[in-house]
């Protein structure tokens, strides 16, 4: 399996993992049966993603896309974060092997699910 340098960097050196204890929104996506589970935590302040973290059970691509997705939403207005696509995440990593594209889909879903959770709680 060949991964790009960026993927390996995010996989090995990501600092974005962990829990946010008083998170404003949590997204839990994936299925452990298939081998990928992603939890995304966000903290929102003044309409912006003030902080975000992930916890992921999964392969190299699952962990790298989680990490990259967090980088991409941090500091962004919530509506902008909501519009991040799986393609954008994969491109930011200089691409993923075709059979690993579903991991980037998971990252997009994780972000959306965390933001929806936040919006539900703040209706």
């Amino acid at each position: 399996m060949m991964y790009t340098k960026k993927v390996m960097e995010h996989f090995q050196n990501s600092q974005n993992y962990g829990k946010i204890e008083d998170a404003d929104g949590i997204g839990k996506v994936g299925n452990s049966r298939c081998g990928d589970v992603m939890w995304i935590y966000i903290k929102v302040k003044d309409g912006k993603i003030a902080d975000a973290k992930y916890e992921t059970f999964g392969c190299v691509a699952a962990i790298a896309t989680s990490s990259m997705a967090i980088d991409m939403i941090k500091g962004k207005p919530v509506d902008q974060a909501l519009s991040i696509t799986n393609k954008a995440v994969a491109e930011a990593l200089d691409g993923l092997p075709p059979e690993k594209m579903h991991c980037s889909v998971l990252a997009e879903e994780g972000i959306k699910s965390a933001i929806e959770d936040y919006q539900q709680k703040n209706k």
Binding site: M1, Y3, M8, F11, Q12, C34, G35, D36, F57, G58, C59, V60, A61, A62, I63, E99
Partner: peptide, 30 residues
């Protein structure tokens, strides 16, 4: 328990170790 095989293989590979796993990801199937 609680972690996935391909991720272990990749970390080990970076440090010069060659092993294998029965995870779906390392075999390319679901």
């Amino acid at each position: 328990k609680y972690i996935e095989g391909e991720a272990m293989l990749a970390m080990l590979d970076q440090q010069g170790f060659a092993l294998s796993s029965g995870s779906a990801c390392s075999s390319g199937s679901l």
